[in-house]
Amino acid sequence: MLLIIGFIGFPIALSLALTLGFTGGLNQIIALIGQGIRPADHWWGTMAGYQALFSDPRFNGDLQQTIIVTVVSTIVVLVLSLAIALIVRLHRGRIAQLLGAIIVVPMFVPVVISAWAIHTFYGGDGFVRSVAALLGLQAPTLTSTMWAVIIGSVWTSLPFASLLVTSGMQSIPDALIDAARDAGAPMSRIVRTIMLPLASTQLIIATTFTSIGILGSFTIPYFLGSNQPTMLGVEISNFLNAYNRPQQAVAMAFVIFVFAAGIAIAYVRANLRGSATEARA
């Protein structure tokens, strides 16, 4: 267990030190070869690295796009996985079964391939534009835009989210739904007042994992997104490899981390609340 802590916790601590301008110890080599390092000027380090970052319009553009893509994709994923879960839970036909089976497929497709498949499907001479052209229409090329990144993020996140939400919905006993129908509630109301609250833990988990995953994603925006602005995951890699500015790269990682941590706190809260209610049951 210590090993686990060591291999994740230690590098994170180390990089936090780097963003604050501590260039000694194990950070020495990276600080030596890196450019644009702002060294510590207080005992706790320096905020100069972060200040430089936030005054950079490029970073702000990236941050904005990252947030938009994350929010939009998460909402779409949530809505779709709810729809899927409801179809599977309430409909139960053959088509619902098939849907339940097909929807997990992207989970087993390596992300690189997902990205590439979506690239060819929605790209300049891809399927979507081919069909449109055959119909005499001019469809936009979605690749290298934010929209392709959103499509890709939805595509890759959907299986996990819908598995979670579906299993949440499946665990609601039939009798609880029947009782509401017997009480005179129409389906839409049952979904809203009975099913959603009872599956709320799974919904929150799905939201958290989806948004955190998209927030720090690299492969999808790398293949599908525009060059500028791009998502922070790609920009971190650019700053690290192409521009050799490790301090900024790692600082960006911490910015993402702050957002992710906010989401994570909501998640932990939901979990604790969940186990508390179960403990009482």
């Binding site: 009798a175 609880l176 509401a180 009480a183 005179g184 009872l198 049951a281």
Partner: peptide, 28 residues
């Protein structure tokens, strides 16, 4: 069932765990 003038008491009661007693009874 929502349009029949009948009301059912279920074998395992089927109370909604996320609602109070009052809200359970008020639901219909």
């Amino acid at each position: 069932p929502e349009r029949r003038p009948s009301a059912m008491v279920f074998q395992q009661y089927a109370l909604w765990p996320h609602m109070t007693v009052f809200r359970n009874v008020a639901y219909p």
